[in-house]
Computed example of a mutant assay.
Amino acid sequence: MDVLGALDVRHGPGDGPVAFGGSLGALGPGGLLAAYRRGLFPLPAADVYASAYNEAVYGDDVEAGEVALLPGGADPYALAWWSPDPRPVIAPDGVRLGSRLARRLRNRSTWWTSADRAFGRVLAACAEGRQPAWLTEELAAVLVRLHELGAAHSGEVWEGEELIGGVFGIAVGPVLSLDSMFHRRPDAARVAVADLGARFGAAGGRLLDAQWDGPHVRSLGAEPMARSRYLAELSGGSGDSAVVPDGAPLPAARLGESARLR
Rank of each mutant, 00 (worst) to 15 (best):
S180L: 14
G201N: 03
V122A: 11
C126N: 08
W111L: 15
E128W: 13
F119W: 12
G150Y: 04
G197D: 10
D116S: 04
G169N: 06
G160F: 05
E148P: 04
G197A: 10
L139D: 07
D179P: 02
A194Y: 13
W111P: 00
A198V: 06
A210W: 12
R117W: 11
A151K: 01
L163C: 09
R100S: 14
P132I: 09
A171Y: 03
D179C: 05
P186N: 05
P174N: 07
A127Y: 03
N107R: 13
G204N: 08
G205C: 06
M181S: 13
A115Y: 08
A151Y: 12
P174M: 12
C126V: 12
R185F: 04
L105C: 07
R104G: 15
R206Y: 06
G173H: 03
V144Y: 00
A188V: 10
R145C: 00
W111Y: 07
G169P: 05
R206G: 11
G197H: 06
F168N: 07
L143T: 06
F168S: 01
D209C: 07
W111G: 00
H153A: 07
I164H: 04
E128P: 00
H153D: 05
A124H: 12
A141N: 03
L143V: 13
E162L: 07
A194T: 07
A152N: 03
S180M: 11
R104S: 15
G155Y: 00
S114N: 08
G204M: 10
G155F: 05
D179Q: 12
G120N: 14
R121H: 07
R106G: 03
L143S: 10
P132E: 04
G129W: 11
L105V: 07
H183M: 05
S177P: 06
R185D: 11
V167N: 01
R104L: 14
L97I: 12
A102Y: 15
S177G: 09
L101V: 12
E138Y: 04
A127D: 04
V144S: 09
E162Y: 04
E159D: 14
W134L: 10
V142P: 02
S180E: 08
A140G: 14
S154E: 01
H183T: 06
R121E: 15
R100N: 15
E161H: 01
S99L: 11
L149E: 14
A210D: 04
G166Q: 08
L208P: 01
A192T: 05
R106D: 09
R130A: 13
G98T: 14
R103N: 07
F200M: 06
S154P: 02
D187T: 04
R117S: 15
E162I: 02
R190G: 00
A192V: 02
G173M: 03
A115T: 15
S99W: 15
L178T: 09
L207D: 04
A115V: 14
A202T: 03
R185M: 11
G155K: 02
G98N: 11
P186L: 05
R185P: 08
S114G: 13
D195V: 00
G173V: 01
R103W: 10
L149C: 11
R106A: 06
F168W: 10
G173T: 02
H153M: 01
A133D: 12
D187C: 06
R184C: 11
L178Y: 06
F168K: 06
A133G: 13
G197S: 10
E148A: 09
E162S: 09
L208D: 03
E148D: 14
W134C: 13
A125M: 08
T113Q: 07
W111V: 09
